[in-house]
Simulated scan of single mutants.
Amino acid sequence: MMSAPRFDAEARQGLAMVSPPLIYAILLLAAPLLTILAYSFFKDGYLEVIREFTLENYRAVWTDPVFHKIMLRSLGVAVAVTLATVLLAFPVAYFLSFVVKPERKALWIFLITIPFWTSYLIRVFLWKVILGHNGVINSSLTGLGLIDEPLGFLLFNVQAMVITLAHAYAPFAILPIYVALEKIDRSLLEAGRDLGESRLMTFWRVTLPLAMPGVIAATLIVFIPTIGDYVTPELIGGGKIPMIANMVQANMLALDNKPMGSALAITAMLIVTVVSLIFLFFNRRFLRVQQ
């Protein structure tokens, strides 16, 4: 009979500890999302928002060919950036986990996190300086006499956006993969080699499946913010290759159509959620086959 009051006291104490971050998360995450969701069902009265329930915004979004084109472009860029980032990050994480001496790993992690010291905007501007008409690459090639005039295809295209975004999100991909590789029991790899497996097959059958949680985390960490990136298409794309975030910004600010901008944002979030769930489904199938 004495356990119930003690349990209630522990429950109250735990609730008191959890309440501040929970309230903080609700205010900063849930409240804005619910506000955008509510706005997506309102009408645009040009001078003000009419708070009447309607599905016209979503009908307009799904029937708009411009939205279809920009959404497909955003998905394509996000997939390309994710593939490039993860494929480049995995060897770095593998080298850091299996080759670098334990006493030097902290130094390598420190070097990997150096890009976080500068603003994301500054890093994007640096790539504009590197790839620009009078940038580092063109100036170097012209100075070496390899080209007569600056190359015009280095900037303001999808390839430049992919390079910039892959560089910006590389540390986000390296660290989770490295953590997953560090958790692998090295005796499992030795057992595989003792059973006659080559290093390549040991990697494919043991290392990669055990590292997949890190790969999944890296993929989602890169894919989700990339598809909603606004700065890179504006600067590196020159505003000529808009992505879905630019379309949302145009409706929210330039056109002052908050209901339509909200409907675009919610629709994009749903599409990203579906794509992420599909990826997780196929990854589970992959792990099942490997097992």
Score class of each variant (00 low, 15 high):
residue 65 P to H: 07
residue 199 R to Q: 15
residue 262 S to K: 03
residue 50 I to R: 13
residue 8 D to T: 07
residue 131 L to S: 00
residue 147 I to D: 10
residue 216 I to P: 01
residue 133 H to F: 15
residue 232 T to R: 11
residue 139 S to I: 06
residue 44 D to A: 09
residue 127 W to N: 06
residue 187 S to F: 00
residue 73 R to T: 00
residue 274 V to H: 08
residue 44 D to F: 13
residue 225 P to F: 15
residue 39 Y to T: 03
residue 170 A to E: 15
residue 83 L to G: 01
residue 171 P to W: 09
residue 121 L to H: 03
residue 72 L to S: 08
residue 275 V to F: 03
residue 171 P to A: 03
residue 175 L to I: 13
residue 189 L to I: 14
residue 200 L to Q: 05
residue 229 D to H: 03
residue 176 P to N: 08
residue 148 D to A: 15
residue 87 L to M: 08
residue 20 P to L: 06
residue 291 Q to S: 13
residue 73 R to K: 04
residue 130 I to P: 01
residue 273 T to A: 09
residue 64 D to I: 09
residue 237 G to D: 05
residue 55 L to I: 14
residue 3 S to Y: 14
residue 250 A to W: 10
residue 6 R to P: 09
residue 129 V to L: 03
residue 10 E to S: 13
residue 51 R to Y: 12
residue 130 I to W: 00
residue 182 E to V: 09
residue 148 D to S: 15
residue 231 V to Y: 09
residue 278 I to Q: 08
residue 118 T to E: 04
residue 134 N to D: 01
residue 205 R to N: 14
residue 67 F to E: 05
residue 149 E to V: 11
residue 264 L to A: 06
residue 169 Y to R: 04
residue 154 L to G: 02
residue 70 I to C: 03
residue 4 A to M: 13
residue 116 F to G: 04
residue 15 L to F: 15
residue 225 P to I: 15
residue 197 E to V: 12
residue 78 A to K: 03
residue 140 S to H: 02
residue 195 L to W: 13
residue 179 V to T: 11
residue 234 E to T: 05
residue 87 L to E: 09
residue 208 L to K: 02
residue 235 L to P: 08
residue 221 I to L: 07
residue 110 F to C: 00
residue 223 F to A: 09
residue 72 L to E: 01
residue 203 F to M: 14
residue 273 T to P: 04
residue 109 I to D: 02
residue 158 V to H: 00
residue 289 V to S: 11
residue 35 T to A: 13
residue 146 L to F: 14
residue 109 I to K: 02
residue 167 H to I: 05
residue 149 E to S: 14
residue 52 E to D: 06
residue 253 L to C: 07
residue 118 T to W: 05
residue 134 N to A: 02
residue 49 V to R: 08
residue 210 L to A: 09
residue 276 S to R: 07
residue 34 L to A: 12
residue 31 A to G: 11
residue 122 I to T: 09
residue 69 K to T: 10
residue 159 Q to W: 11
residue 137 I to T: 11
residue 12 R to G: 07
residue 202 T to L: 04
residue 221 I to M: 10
residue 228 G to N: 10
residue 146 L to P: 08
residue 27 L to F: 00
residue 1 M to C: 12
residue 196 G to C: 12
residue 116 F to Y: 12
residue 57 N to A: 05
residue 263 A to G: 03
residue 170 A to V: 15
residue 25 A to P: 01
residue 86 V to T: 01
residue 148 D to G: 15
residue 220 L to G: 10
residue 25 A to G: 07
residue 104 R to P: 06
residue 17 M to D: 10
residue 203 F to N: 13
